[in-house]
């Protein structure tokens, strides 16, 4: 079997892009101290909204814009629950995923069986959105580590009591982070429907949102780590598809498990490293997953 390394790399870039967007968004959310398990729900919302808009207008880029807005909008449900109503973040994230999957399935009926408009290729015949994803990696890194807003966001995620005591607005910071996470997940979802599958089908994100959550852990909460994780995942996916195409004597159903098993293995490996290596430690933000309520 001949595998041209360049074409494999291009496939890998495509396969990793949805996860890259979603995981970069979730990275910012978690650095602000919020655990949003609703990534899958926001991705599927973006996948449908983006596809719908792209199909209706014939403009795929408008589709991605709408997907970002839709992802951000639905993330506000989670934001309201956790930041205003102080509900448990794990349960609220799950609720967002279940709701998003249902809502997209319900509203998506009219779009079943139609094709997405063609996308003009970007530089080097690589999709513009893939480029955007690659640009977002240094951009997110720069924001988190080099800007004052990024510093405040990290401070809020690290220790919300202290950030509050210094006068920073915990709720506003977190709302903004959650909205950004929603928008990024929306774009990631839309990439699947508009640029990869070119169709809308129910449940088409197939766990990509959960894999994105695992990749944030894998990255040890850094932007370059997210890129590495997304590429690793993309590599496994491409390899698996290649093996399927080559007709390897392993049932298709078992081959298609590879991304999920790889995610578990990677998660275990990285958790073990954080657990056992004294020097590595964990980069998890100190206030991750806890709510904040100040009595004034």
């Amino acid at each position: 079997m001949m595998i041209d390394p360049l074409s494999v790399f291009l496939l890998l870039l495509g396969a990793s892009t949805p996860i890259l967007f979603a995981a970069l968004g979730e990275l910012v959310v978690e650095r602000a101290g919020v655990l949003n398990l609703g990534v899958e729900g926001m991705m599927i919302t973006g996948a449908l909204a983006g596809f719908g808009a792209a199909y209706s207008t014939g403009n795929p880029f408008l589709g991605f814009l709408v997907a970002a807005c839709a992802g951000a909008a639905i993330s506000m449900l989670f934001a309201a629950l956790t930041q205003v109503f102080l509900a448990n973040q794990v349960a609220s994230g799950l609720a967002l995923t279940l709701f998003g999957l249902g809502l997209a399935a319900m509203l998506g009926k009219p779009f079943e069986g139609v094709r997405a408009p063609a996308m003009p290729a970007g530089p080097l015949r690589i999709n513009w959105i893939v480029w955007l994803g690659l640009v977002m990696v240094p951009l997110v890194w720069w924001f988190l580590n080099r800007t004052r807003s990024g510093l405040i966001l990290r401070a809020v995620g690290e220790n919300h009591e202290a950030a509050h005591a210094l006068g920073y607005n915990i709720r506003l910071t977190r709302l903004a982070a959650i909205a950004f996470g929603g928008a990024m997940a929306g774009v990631g979802g839309a990439f699947i429907s508009i640029a990869t599958v070119l169709q809308w089908t129910e449940g088409m994100t197939a766990g990509a949102g959960w894999i994105a959550l695992a990749i944030v852990v894998f990255s040890n909460w850094t932007a370059p780590g997210v890129l590495a994780g997304a590429w690793l995942f993309g590599g496994v996916t491409v390899l698996q598809l290649r093996l399927q195409a080559a007709g390897v004597a392993v049932p298709v159903q078992l081959l298609s498990m590879a991304p999920y098993l790889a995610t578990i293995i990677v998660l275990v490996a990285i958790s073990a490293r954080q657990k056992f290596s004294r020097r590595a430690g964990t980069g998890a933000p100190g206030s991750l997953g806890t709510n904040f309520h100040a009595l004034r």
Binding site: L37, G207, W210, A214, Q253, L261, I264, V268, S271, Q274
Partner: peptide
């Protein structure tokens, strides 16, 4: 290993489906 039971148990849903 300290792996998150949330993510592992969920990944195993997709594995079980397959």
């Amino acid at each position: 290993f300290g792996a998150s039971e949330i993510l592992v148990s969920l990944m195993l849903v997709y594995v079980a489906q397959r």
